[in-house]
Design a protein around this nucleic acid. Sequence first.
DNA 1: AGAAGCATGTAATGAGTTACATGATTTG
DNA 2: CAAATCATGTAACTCATTACATGCTTCT
Lengths: 186, 186
Amino acid sequence: MSLRYALLGLLADEPGSGYELARRFEDTLDRYAWHAKHNQIYQELNRLAEDRLVEVVAEGARGRKTYAITEAGRTSLVEWLRNPPDSGVVRNEFLLRLFLTFVLEPAEARQQLQQYAEHAQKRLDHLNALIAALPPEDVAPPLKFGHLAATFGLWQLPAVRDWALHSVAEIDQWQQSHDGASDPRP
Amino acid sequence: MSLRYALLGLLADEPGSGYELARRFEDTLDRYAWHAKHNQIYQELNRLAEDRLVEVVAEGARGRKTYAITEAGRTSLVEWLRNPPDSGVVRNEFLLRLFLTFVLEPAEARQQLQQYAEHAQKRLDHLNALIAALPPEDVAPPLKFGHLAATFGLWQLPAVRDWALHSVAEIDQWQQSHDGASDPRP
DNA sequence: AGAAGCATGTAATGAGTTACATGATTTG
DNA sequence: CAAATCATGTAACTCATTACATGCTTCT
């Protein structure tokens, strides 16, 4: 059901077509919160329309349909937000890979962790650039859609980066204390 | 396919039965990286055994089967680790809720963010207690399985907490500057 | 003796992916 | 006029959840 509420949330921010929603998904939710492909989005929008939680408010060129959230939709979304489950499902392939890195030889694991740290730094730079490019009036209001997502990245990405760097340092320490012997090959 | 590699990863750490693996899943991967229910684990183990990536190394009471990773399994896992996709899928219902919190009235949003901060703090305390209770030899080696998961929490949880607290402060600031008027009700 | 936990599974349904399909409009 | 992008969908398949099912062992 999460996809359903993700779409209601995007539409609560502002109306949009399936195509547009797919792009807004990518720009905001996709990296941290939820992933969905375009065809799944179209199908869910049709179901939402059947259930009268959204409605078509305009039709444009190329069969474009603009959806808006209805009052019933807003009610349903708010109710969902008010009743969080004890434990929400998490699936993150990126972190799964990180957690399984221990399987690799220390040197290779170290290299991967180093790359992850760099990757997190790049995304942080990118995010900072995005925020800097925003007009000032979009930066201010704390409860506009993208805002929470963007600021979350500002706290999350340094944490991932520093964790990876810390793990690299840990591997180095462990190797130093462990092999007094140098590389057997010349 | 991620579940498949998650199981191979757990078995690369040490052999175990389906039941045991389900519990190890919960203790390590479940919170941050991957979620799976016991019946899905059993099914995937059977498929892995068919494909000779794991094998039954012991059978115990109550039909208990202990699985171990095979050489082919280890090769397959390492290959997967070496070839990360450009973008891994992320699904996190908790964060989705956070991102949609802007739909609520500022006062209610504030309250929820406050709760998230407290929740993160509680989990951090719990994690610190767990680590403190470990025998020293389990804390040291940087590449044992649970280690990456545990240290990740040590970086991740404060980030979530501080972000939530920062958002609370932002809402307070915004409200102060916005309504010079006090609550209409007495 | 009963409860809690151990241990594994099946069947039906729902969520999500992959591949395929179609055609209009805008931009270079 | 060709390429890129807009725009929506269907069908087959795999992954994941829910509900059901069974029986053993240990602890109190």
